[in-house]
Structures are given as C-alpha cells and as structure tokens.
Design a protein around this nucleic acid. Sequence first.
DNA 1: CGGGTTATTGATTCGGTTCAAATCGAGTGG
DNA 2: CCACTCGATTTGAACCGAATCAATAACCCG
Lengths: 228, 228
Amino acid sequence: MLSRDCFDGSISFFRPHQYLAREGDDQSHVFLIQEGWACRYRLLPDGRRQITALFLPGDWCELAWTHGEPPAQPVVALTNTRAMAVSCAQIRRECEVRPDLRAGLWSEIVTSIHRQTEWIINLGRKSAIERLSHLFCELFQRLRNSGLTYGDQFAMPLTQIEIADVTGLTPVHVNRTLREMRARGLVELQSKWLRIGDLDELRRIALFQASPSLTADNALPKVMLARA
Amino acid sequence: MLSRDCFDGSISFFRPHQYLAREGDDQSHVFLIQEGWACRYRLLPDGRRQITALFLPGDWCELAWTHGEPPAQPVVALTNTRAMAVSCAQIRRECEVRPDLRAGLWSEIVTSIHRQTEWIINLGRKSAIERLSHLFCELFQRLRNSGLTYGDQFAMPLTQIEIADVTGLTPVHVNRTLREMRARGLVELQSKWLRIGDLDELRRIALFQASPSLTADNALPKVMLARA
DNA sequence: CGGGTTATTGATTCGGTTCAAATCGAGTGG
DNA sequence: CCACTCGATTTGAACCGAATCAATAACCCG
C-alpha cells in the first residue's frame, strides 16, 4: 500500500474542517493521505453542498494538481488527518525519468475516474437505500484494500450530514434510511463505527460491481517516489 | 482543435446505437472523435440507464484505455460518427519520448475529471431546470470551443430520452422542464437544433462556472501525434 | 455544567415519477 | 398520394419518495 512506502515530503497535520487546499490556490504540492479522511466539495450559493470526492488513507489528494492545474474545489479534512506533502515539481521531475512512476500515477487517476463514474450512476439513477448501500460497499472495499477493516467492521467518521452531502440526500432522509437498513440487518452504524451485517445483500441492493482492477487485487502498479 | 490536426490512425464510421467499445473489451486503440456524438453509460438490471459521459468532436474517447485498462462501460454512438482509431501502443510509445504529448494527454484527462465532477454536483444537488440549464451551458461551451456553434445555436442530436439519461430525470419531466424553459425564453429546442435565448440567465440558473482552463480559452496544450 | 453540533422522529409538502393516452413526424411501401 | 408504422414528443392525472418544517433528545467538548 502507498502509505507504507517511503516518499519524499514533509508531514502535515490537519484538524477537522481545516483546508488542505482552497479553490484556485496555487498548489505547489499534492498530498499522500496517511491517516484520516478528507473530502472535496462544491458549495452552492444557497447553501446546498455536494461532496465530490472522498480521500482516504493511501489516496493521493489531487494528482490533477501536479501539472499546474489549481484546485477546482476546496479540499477539507473531515477528521484529524496526517498527510505527506509531495512537491509537484518533484513529481514532474521524477516522471521525466521514470516510466513506472508515470504508469502508476496514470493508473491512480484512472481509478479515481472510475469512482467518480460510479458516483454519477449512484446520484443519477439510484434510490436512497441503493445510494447508501453503494457508498458503504465502496468504503468497505477501499478500506479493506488498505487493511483498515476489522472483520466486517470499519471506522466510519462521516456524520449523517456528510453522508447526505455525498449521496445527494437530506440528513433527515439519510437517518430514516439508515434506520431501515439497520432493521433489515444490512448495516449497523453507531459511534462512528460501521458494521456490515450482510455484505452480499448490501452489494445486491447497491448494484455494486467491484471494479476489475480492485478485485484482481493490488494488481494496480503501486506508485513510489524514491526518497531523494 | 484536435480534429484538424494530423494523427496516425484509421478512420472508423459508426451508426447510431453502434458500439465503439463494449464493457471489458480488450481495446487496442482509442478514438479521436472527428464528427458526431457518442456516450458511455451504465444500464442497471431493471432498465434504468445513466449516461456517464458525452463524447463530442475533438474529444478523446477514453484515454483511460491507453494503458491497458479495459472499458469499464460500453460506449455507443448517438449519431453518425466519424472517429480516428489511434493505437494505444503507439500512444504509449510516443509518450515515452515526448513530454509535451504526455502533458497534453494529462491535461485532457484532467479536463474530463472536471466535467465529471460538475455532473456529480448537477445530479446530487440540483433541480431539474438547473440540471438542464447546466447541460446546455456545458454543451454550448464545449461546442463553441470547437467552432461548432453558430451564433447562439448549435446542433443538439440528443433525444429527450437521452437528455433524461444524462440528467437523471424521466423523459416526461425533461419534456415539461423544456416547455418551461421555452416559455421563459431560456432556450428553444426543436428538430435537433438548440437555440440559446438568454445565455446569462441560463448560466445563472445553472450555477454554471466556466472552467478556468476553458475560459483562458484553448490555453490547453493541444495533443498531437505526428503522423508516423 | 452549558452550548453547539448531531441524531431522531412526526407531520406536511412538493418535485418528480409513473401510468396512460393522444399527437406529431419521418420513413416506407403500396 | 395515401396508409401504415415506429419512434419521439407532448399532455393529463394519480401517486410516491424524498424534502421541508418543526421539535426533541442525545452527545460531545471545552
């Protein structure tokens, strides 16, 4: 996993609600999340909010920035977060001479595109319970690939408000839907800890299809930057 | 514009509903769309459909495939389509020796990520009229950048059913919303031709923010592959 | 303890869906 | 030129999933 490898960069810490990047910032570095969760989002003028990506341990926070593109949206920590700041210039420099690194970064960005595509399907065509089921399947899979699940459970720091902002629902309806899911034995969510009651059924409801590259697990060429 | 440059590859033609790629295909080439529209989509078991990307003239159809990743979703032509098939192997080869090409492809993929992110916001948090307004703003901007608009009009081959599959609505409600938009003088859509009545108002309703890289227009490093 | 988020539940409303049917338009063939 | 078809568009009516409004309870942290 990415987070266990050695990279060159300084370690940064963030508190909940603290910005990793603001819209339009001149971002000279990207982050490799080591611990904690962060998200990027868009706030509409009237207060509606949509979270457009979740960053979990092992994720790169915004490879898009590496080539000079400024952040299109703010990125904010959801929990206490530890991340390594890696210089964009360094990444570009290393990429010049290391085809394997280029391939690895490419692969990471393709993965993030797949995830976004799934979110589009989720938001466009699924019911509330399908959306929540999908979200939990995705989180379980991502965290499991990073060794951050414990049996059928994992730490789930999102509030119901944040879950609503991911799934395009209202907090009230998230609450009701969670109650139903609990009643049906699908999942149990309490004190920031999520237990999967019935993974198969959850996947079925979510219409979840494990992405090929993730089932053939860790087949993804993993990105490494040698310590300078 | 991409479509006017010289690339190496054979020209393919597709009829509406014909596949450019199927899910999981071993895709040895990508397409540079020269004329016509295509889309990628997911079909849910019960028939619900969500279109997850639109490919217009000048677009690469699925740079994600270049590094061996098979298509995660089918891509189908929406109109008669002419496209150049460019070998993935050739792209990878050229990338090895041409940093400018790498940068160009990177920039293209970042643009597509931004578009996907906007769709997530659209589907997650916007009303029907806001979604349609956004879609039309996006199409207008993309086509204008390719010189395919004529004053305040452009060819819009999508049926209302397809518009529904893009915006996550039902065809019936798309129809009603279009009627309202027509009544308010925002847009007029007839016989596959769309006229923008009030672009400023349309943008305001859509909560549309022109992407920075697109307003600084054609500032994007344009991708070129020399004819071999 | 106290104040502020977060979670929960009820009542009501509403945007959008669903079902149904009529209309329109472009082909196609007689 | 007309009859016929088939898809796309348009409109109506009833319904429903989720939003909204409102109020309380639980929790967390300083």
